[in-house]
Simulated scan of single mutants.
Amino acid sequence: MIIEKIVNKIAQENTYVLSNSTSYLIIDPGSDSSALLEYLKLTDKAVCAILLTHAHFDHIMGLNDLKKYFPSAPIYLHHSEKEWMKNPELNASLFFLGKAITGPDAEQFYKIGQDYNLDGFRFRVLETPGHSIGGVSLLFESEGDSCLFSGDALFKNAIGRWDLPTGNQAQLLESIRDQLFRLDNQIRVLPGHGPETTIGAEKLHNPFFQ
């Protein structure tokens, strides 16, 4: 599996494009849909699915354009945020941009605890609310190179903000301790913003847990 990161313009949010021999898997289409589509057009691979770690505006802005080109690719989201795609107050676009950003409805809702296999992409969904009520982290385990897409829960030396609708600092800290810090130290953490880190590094150095 190859992982490509695209840093978007609006909030420097990260979009991740995973690829294998036959398909792409997209995590959090951000605000720069043109860069994402240019990358996807380099081959004739299909997009098998679009995974959202949560439904804040900066992580869903590319969905409308992406679905025009890949209409059969289902959008996965936590059921707690199913209304956010059409609600600019909940997805925070009114607060940050002063205008409404909306996206297409999700077609699939995560089944927590289920092992997913989408066209050869194998992962597990961990509930990590606190930044938002339906925040999830996506764990891809493989021998020698496991990685966690932590959305806006855990960053390098930081955690997600908790002052937006449904945010809760205590819940976020609990999510990270109970769900993420129980993982192996060497697992790479690929967050929704900023550079990658590891579980072990955040246990040792993240100031919110010292």
Rank of each mutant, 00 (worst) to 15 (best):
A73F: 06
F181Q: 03
I199E: 02
E13V: 08
P88T: 11
D105Y: 06
I176D: 01
E89H: 12
I101P: 07
T128E: 07
I3G: 03
N14I: 07
S93I: 01
G130C: 02
R182I: 15
K5N: 10
P74L: 04
K82M: 13
M85F: 15
S23A: 15
E83P: 11
I75M: 03
S142N: 14
I6H: 06
L77F: 03
I176C: 02
L42F: 07
G98T: 05
S33I: 07
Q12L: 13
T53F: 02
V189K: 00
I50W: 01
D32G: 06
K86W: 05
A35V: 05
A46H: 12
M61W: 00
G98S: 02
I27R: 00
H193Y: 11
G200C: 08
S93R: 00
T128S: 05
L118G: 09
K111W: 03
K5I: 12
I2G: 14
G103N: 03
E107V: 09
S31Q: 01
N14G: 10
H78A: 13
A11Y: 10
G134T: 04
E141I: 14
N206A: 09
T128Q: 01
F208A: 14
K82Y: 05
L42C: 11
E83M: 11
A92E: 13
R188T: 15
R122A: 12
F57W: 08
L180G: 03
L18K: 00
Y116M: 08
A201L: 09
I187L: 07
E141Q: 15
E141G: 12
N168L: 05
L118T: 07
D32R: 00
E141D: 14
I75E: 03
N91D: 09
Y76S: 06
A92H: 01
K5G: 10
D119N: 15
A55Y: 01
H56C: 06
I101F: 02
L90A: 11
G62I: 06
Y110H: 03
F57G: 03
D28K: 01
S33H: 13
D44N: 14
G200W: 01
G62L: 05
D178K: 14
L36G: 05
S146G: 15
S19A: 11
K67Y: 09
R124V: 12
G113P: 12
D28N: 15
S72Q: 13
H205K: 07
Q171H: 03
A35W: 00
R177T: 13
T43Y: 03
T198Y: 04
L126M: 04
Y116T: 08
D65L: 08
E202A: 09
Q12F: 12
K203N: 09
D115R: 10
S150A: 13
G98V: 08
P29F: 05
D115K: 13
I112W: 01
D145K: 09
V136S: 01
F95S: 09
P88R: 01
Q114M: 12
E4Q: 14
K86Q: 15
N8L: 01
D58L: 04
